[in-house]
């Protein structure tokens, strides 16, 4: 016992020393705790809270953007994933952070839905927007061998065969609302099948277990390219640049609201305006860099830039829209 203790201690001290050396050699020290200067913002590394798990679409988008934004901001940006509560845990923490610009939060469409769904009191008014980066519309996608090629034919078929199974990413999710809207506007009866996220719903569609999904083009891109699925229409004013051949719903003769997922950056609501402006400039520029745009294109994600003011207005509209829809659809 005594001997092993000595042996172990020796090992421990040596390894501790190695770690000390290793720690010293990592170049920057984060011990810079100067939080006074607004003028020389940013004077220390910035933290970006991503309220989603590492490795998902939201996370990879954030990390790709950060990689390109660091050189415009002049400081490193650390990504911190905070999961839980469909994103509300991370976002709440972001909203309650010190409003000094050193904590930035990624937010997504659910922020304008939480309150209406009764999931969290958090809304977009707890934040000050920096910029909107990404927007992907809902897209009505069906198996490639389905007996309909247009929205019109789909509606006609659904009227003859009520109860078509339409997969969504969970009750109350943005893709569920999209499907409900299509059903309501077209006057067809659909059987909504909830899955744990968009990917399992797409898998079920490829396997022929559901008849359609209303998720973003990014989620179905692989299967469109492989020829397993076809998209009938997208729920936006303009065609998606991911799938430019696919018409919008209004082109296809059905007026539906624009529904889609989006991701943007925000800071706590009391953050000074000049700091917001600095961040806005850095991230907007970063989103235009080739490394970021090619990442988004390869991943099938759409880029949609909106400045701080436009983003605020956009979230206001979303908030109104979802409030009305969730009430009409009786989802909460």
């Amino acid at each position: 016992m005594k001997n092993s203790m000595k042996k172990f201690l020796g090992l421990f001290i040596v390894s501790t020393l190695i770690f000390v050396l290793a720690a010293c050699s990592t170049k920057e020290s984060s011990g810079n705790t100067d939080n006074s200067g607004d003028k020389d913002y940013p004077s220390k590394p910035v933290t970006l809270i991503v309220p989603a798990a590492a490795g998902g679409g939201t996370d990879t988008t954030a990390r790709a953007l950060v990689a390109s934004a660091e050189k415009f901001l002049g400081k490193s940006i650390g990504v911190v994933n905070k999961t839980g509560g469909s994103g509300s845990v991370g976002m709440t923490e972001g909203a309650n952070a010190k409003p000094d610009g050193y904590t930035v939060s990624m937010v997504f469409v659910e922020l304008t839905m939480f309150e209406h769904l009764g999931l969290s009191p958090l809304t977009h008014n707890d934040f000050k927007p920096i910029a909107l980066i990404n927007l992907d519309p809902a897209a009505l996608t069906v198996p490639a061998d389905a007996p309909y090629d247009t929205v019109e034919e789909f509606i006609a078929y659904a009227k003859e065969n009520p109860g078509l199974k339409i997969g969504n990413a969970g009750t109350g999710s943005i893709w569920h609302i999209a499907a409900e809207i299509v059903g309501a506007e077209a006057g067809i009866e659909l059987n909504h099948v909830p899955f744990e996220g968009a990917a399992p719903a797409v898998t079920a569609l490829v396997g022929g277990h559901v008849d359609a999904v209303t998720v973003s083009p990014a989620e179905v891109k692989t299967q469109l390219d492989a020829g397993n699925l076809k998209t009938l229409a997208v729920m936006s004013d303009e065609r998606s640049n991911i799938i430019p051949d696919v018409p919008t719903f209004s082109e296809a003769g059905l007026e539906v609201s624009n529904i889609g997922t989006w991701r943007g950056l925000t800071v706590p609501k009391d953050t000074p305006d000049d700091i917001v402006a600095t961040l806005e400039a850095a991230f907007m520029k970063a989103a235009e860099q080739e490394e970021f745009t090619s990442f988004m294109e390869n991943s099938g994600l759409g880029i949609q830039l909106k400045s701080s003011n436009e983003f605020q207005q956009f979230m206001d509209e979303n908030y109104e829209l979802f409030g009305k829809m969730i009430k009409d659809l009786d989802l909460h």
Binding site: S15, T16, F19
Partner: peptide, 13 residues
């Protein structure tokens, strides 16, 4: 001393 200082150091690194 070594264990109570080494453990947080290990976590840090």
């Amino acid at each position: 001393i070594s264990v109570s200082l080494g453990t947080p150091l290990f976590i840090f690194v």
